[in-house]
Simulated assay, not measured.
Amino acid sequence: MEGIVTMYQDFMKKADPRIADYPLMQSPFLVMGILLGYVYFVLSLGPRLMANRKPFNLKKFMVLYNFFLVGLSLYIVYEFLMAGWLTGYTWRCDPVDFSQDPKALRMVKVAWLFVFSKFIELTDTVIFVLRKKNEQVTFLHLFHHSVLPWSWWWGAKFGPGGMGSFHAMINSMVHVVMYFYYGLSAAGPAFQKYLWWKKHITAIQLVQFVIVSLHISQYYFMPSCQYQFPIFIHLIWIYGTIFFILFSNFWYQSYTKGKRLPRVAQQAAQHNGSSVHENGTVTNGKVKAN
């Protein structure tokens, strides 16, 4: 046991000291506890607590929550661009800058902020549970919210920046669009006519995985690349492939088979005698990416 502890301590010494004092970044056991508690609440405790209760009316909170995440995601995108992606990165083999340069420190800050935002987004699923929308807690949703924050924590802890941060920036761009849609959908029936583009959110997510995979795949064709953490490259490529498959299946089930057509399309289908039916409501935080 002492040997395992020593190995762990030696391993953690390789982490980036610049991010050590940021909230949640002191120990992986803290975030592990948060994520395990999240899974337990979503799959067990929450549904049991809500079993004999009426669903909470969280419409006003959902509007504020979603538009807050729109603003936060926009800020994260801007910071990624200013910390490197528009101020010196080549968009090819970009190593992590471990110096005390202001731009390097800015990248550390936004890498942490991105990770922290993923813990804020756990609220998506809590909303499902409190509104008794447990059918929304799919494998894809739970996997995204529980496993990926754990991976991103390690990325920020050891390599905040460089080419491994590209997917985080793209993911934040997608979340601007996604949470804007959710904010409108939570605002009430008056905004339903503006939600015809529901289907395109999934399309944007699929494009995201293609762009991220193409960018990260450059690594495998470069004669040399000084990026310090090849393991992150492999994980990003694997995650991109897995999520492309999962979201492609989501697209097929939702739109090709007609289970989640937008309301306008659904009404047209009903008018034409189609058997496709929806309950006509749009809820916050449906399945989304990384």
Rank of each mutant, 00 (worst) to 15 (best):
V129R: 02
F98V: 11
K109H: 15
F143T: 05
F139G: 15
F143H: 11
H141A: 07
D97T: 11
F116G: 03
V115P: 00
F139S: 12
L105G: 10
L142Y: 07
S117M: 03
L122S: 02
F114I: 02
M107S: 09
E135S: 15
F116C: 05
S117H: 00
K118D: 01
V137R: 06
V108T: 14
Q100K: 15
A111Y: 03
L122A: 03
K133W: 05
D101V: 09
E135Y: 15
S99I: 08
L122M: 08
R131M: 10
L113A: 10
E121F: 01
F119H: 02
K118N: 01
F143I: 04
E121Y: 01
V108F: 07
S117T: 01
V110D: 00
W112Y: 14
L113P: 03
L113I: 06
R131G: 04
F98E: 07
Q136E: 14
T138P: 12
T125A: 09
D101Y: 12
K133T: 07
Q136F: 08
V137W: 04
K103P: 11
H141C: 08
Q100D: 15
I127T: 03
H141E: 06
V96H: 05
F116P: 00
F143P: 04
T125G: 06
F128H: 06
L122W: 01
T125D: 06
L140K: 06
L105Y: 11
A111D: 05
F128S: 03
V137N: 09
A104T: 09
T138G: 13
T125M: 06
L105I: 10
